[in-house]
């Protein structure tokens, strides 16, 4: 399938989903659906580095939080630009702020990408496991910084209350849902493009045997940095609309370990070698968690996710996509 056709199909599905929710559902469906879509973006982003290159990122919550707090910061500036900027540039800034959400999402992506670049540059030159450990600690440190930064609310948290309704979309949650659908399309399309380009082949050589790849002249460090930046940027973008979604942002909810475990568990359960894996994993786990949170409790559903992750990595290392391929004997094109 060629990429334009693929994008077209994605858009058709996205529009159909939105319209179905709009006409047959209620706002709750949008709230629940938003979370699932957010997990699709996170899982796909994680998979670009984790699945394609084989480098584990435990800091998904950190990158997500960079996005969310970029949003909080820009929103707070937008509320009162006169407190932040000197008089000389104030009129110009007042014209720019408050920024629309799509612009904030892009800026958040750039910020998270830069942090990914920095962390990656320091740790990716060494053994892969150092990168994993550094990302694990990264989330803790970012949380320390945020807790001590009173401009974005510190440990008290910050309110981000958007307008009630938006032109064209109606309720604000529907607007956020549509933005998230767009992000899902961007994430899936870029994952699929990477998979089929020479970049993806390069990533795969790193995953299979980095030493051999290096010896054959594959620029491994450069490729790993590209993957880290892309993956981090997408996670940041997934986090940017979150403050608008939740209304009240505090470090505990943004740095929740749940994001880290979910963005690892979803691709692992779905299958890490193709773009379809994280999508399947995120839809299954995301929907299950929405149901379990309402019917049982949110702690129990995280326990289930953890147990599923352990079970799948032991029993079915190739995930659902791998199981499908071995049962039906079909090999998807690489």
């Amino acid at each position: 399938m060629r990429t334009p056709v693929f994008v077209l199909i994605e858009i058709v599905i996205a529009v159909a989903l939105y319209l179905a929710f709009h006409f047959f559902g209620n706002d709750y469906l949008f709230f629940a659906g938003y979370t699932v879509l957010q997990f699709i973006v996170l899982a796909t982003a994680w998979n670009i580095l984790g699945g394609y290159c084989g480098y584990v990122n435990f800091g998904s919550a950190g990158f997500f939080a960079i996005g969310a707090y970029t949003s909080v910061c820009l929103f707070t500036i937008g509320q009162a630009p006169e407190d932040v900027f000197p008089a000389a540039i104030l009129p110009a800034m007042q014209a720019i702020f408050p920024l629309p959400v799509p612009v904030i999402i892009v800026i958040a992506g750039i910020m998270a990408g830069l942090v990914g670049l920095g962390t990656g540059y320091l740790t990716l030159r060494l053994r892969g496991v150092f990168f994993a450990i550094a990302t694990l600690a990264l989330a803790v440190v970012l949380q320390t910084l945020i807790v001590n930064w009173s401009f974005v609310g510190g440990s008290r948290g910050a309110y981000v209350i958007p307008a009630n309704t938006v032109p064209v979309f109606g309720p604000y949650i529907q607007y956020l849902f549509a933005l998230m659908l767009l992000l899902v399309i961007v994430a899936l399309t870029s994952a699929r493009l990477i998979e089929r380009s020479s970049l993806g082949v390069g990533f795969a050589t790193i995953r299979d045997d980095e030493l051999a790849a290096e010896a054959c002249g594959v620029p491994t460090l450069k490729l790993k940095l590209i993957a880290t930046v892309l993956s981090g940027a997408l996670m940041g973008m997934a986090g940017a609309p979150f403050p608008f979604y939740i209304g009240y942002t505090e470090p505990g909810s943004v740095f929740d370990l749940g994001y880290a475990i979910n963005s690892i568990a979803m691709p692992m359960i779905g299958g890490t070698t193709s773009w379809a894996g994280p999508l399947i994993g995120a839809i299954l786990l995301g929907t299950m968690q929405q149901v379990a949170t309402v019917t049982i409790s949110s702690a129990v559903n995280l326990l289930i996710v953890g147990l599923l992750l352990i079970g799948f990595v032991i029993v079915a290392p190739s995930g659902i996509v791998g199981l499908w391929q071995s049962w039906f004997g079909k090999r998807s094109k690489p």
């Binding site: 480098y55 496991v129 568990a265 995280l302 992750l309 990595v313």
Partner: peptide
């Protein structure tokens, strides 16, 4: 197996 899955295993254990 690649270390990826081993790491995910221990991370799952930590979490559970």
């Amino acid at each position: 197996q690649d270390s990826l899955r081993g790491l995910a295993f221990f991370f799952g254990l930590l979490f559970v």
